[in-house]
Design a protein around this nucleic acid. Sequence first.
DNA 1: CGCTTGGTTGATGTCTGTCAATTTTTGTGG
DNA 2: CCACAAAAATTGACAGACATCAACCAAGCG
Lengths: 229, 229
Amino acid sequence: MIDRTLVSALPIFAGMEESALDKLLSNAVQRPVAKGAKVFEQGQKATSFYLLLQGRLKVMQVTAGGQQLIVRVVHPGDLFGFALAIGRTEYPGTPIAVADSIVLAWPMNMMNSFLERNPTLAINAMQMIGQRLDQAHNRIREMSTQEVERRIAHTVIRLAQEAGIHEGADIRIDFPISRQDIAEMTGTTLHTVSRILSNWETRGLVKGGRQLLLVSNLTGLKRLAEHED
Amino acid sequence: MIDRTLVSALPIFAGMEESALDKLLSNAVQRPVAKGAKVFEQGQKATSFYLLLQGRLKVMQVTAGGQQLIVRVVHPGDLFGFALAIGRTEYPGTPIAVADSIVLAWPMNMMNSFLERNPTLAINAMQMIGQRLDQAHNRIREMSTQEVERRIAHTVIRLAQEAGIHEGADIRIDFPISRQDIAEMTGTTLHTVSRILSNWETRGLVKGGRQLLLVSNLTGLKRLAEHED
DNA sequence: CGCTTGGTTGATGTCTGTCAATTTTTGTGG
DNA sequence: CCACAAAAATTGACAGACATCAACCAAGCG
């Protein structure tokens, strides 16, 4: 049995009664996922849905043409793999642990019955998905109106806010992330990402390294991202 | 009072009891929207949410830099303007009627109470938003991996499926749509759209015109959209 | 200490956005 | 009902941002 206090503060469970939350947790299974391992694979029948307790995941998709892209990064406290909630029976992507992680899993068929019995949970879930929709629209807007450099700037800022820890004067992205990863998040190539990050480094905006990214000048980066030059 | 039979078949109300649906409808206000008129404007406080009964809307967004894009096309039976469901207090976009339309409006504050009392409705709403999320992800994938011609092909195919009516051997997009509109849906310029559609016309795939689009060869278009050349 | 993975950087080509000019269609007011 | 203006579409010329191709370097790791 998972301790309620571990999860009761999460937005998705906000406003739920303790007994209901306990009931929910009693049906969850805890599972460690080693760095580099997949939680499930794109195209598999969706049998469970998940909550990330600890660690970090990236959700990948491969297109029919074999190209890869990163749909999103899953942070602790995020739900993922709730295919049925969006009317699908198969998982649309593959979550891969980029750091040693722990996930909570529920059988998918529990979802509907639980949502029906807990309207608060249903509303929370709807809002969470809604926020994701909003983020997706932002990304679409960025991709259709902004050139690569600003898209990368936005992505790096987002990462700094969602997964940044202060390290001296810098903000460090708290998981291993490659140029290729950033390219797959912004819809460009690792070459272009590398060039732009190198340029930023000479300008003192960021510090780079192997699977490493530090933001040195967040406001400068924001100016670059927002400003209509 | 709006007649229940007009809306009871809509997916969003699937599984709802008649009495609950009647109660819901008794709080709705019907409102005609003339072609070219806006239902509400981006940035306004979200006071109502809507259902499109008849006609067609395009939802526009303007970026900080003044660029426009079309977030989506609203077809009869679709909900729109449910900002609160996604945790916002202002409308994120502006719906404009591209044909004379009729909408149903509810006060936004009714939403939560109604969802709490109708778990089925909450689940339906969640799934609907989820499907939209899925569509948004598809669009992101297209934008990051495909060149303009294939993106336009996908968009035209989608329009033909969602708003196409057969007209002889052709499929006609059933509302006035300009090259500019298509450009704003695909993240390109009207010039590029014009060039590509002209080319398609010489190849017998589509027929064009002023605010007009007919698909002559859907399978050919699909081959163009799917095929890895 | 070689191999593998990730990163950098240069050269080149091309897609597609920008600028510009022209035509076609539609709507409106005299 | 015609003339004129406004809106939509077409097409060409040109440039620039990025992808692609290619070679080389650095850093973990067995």
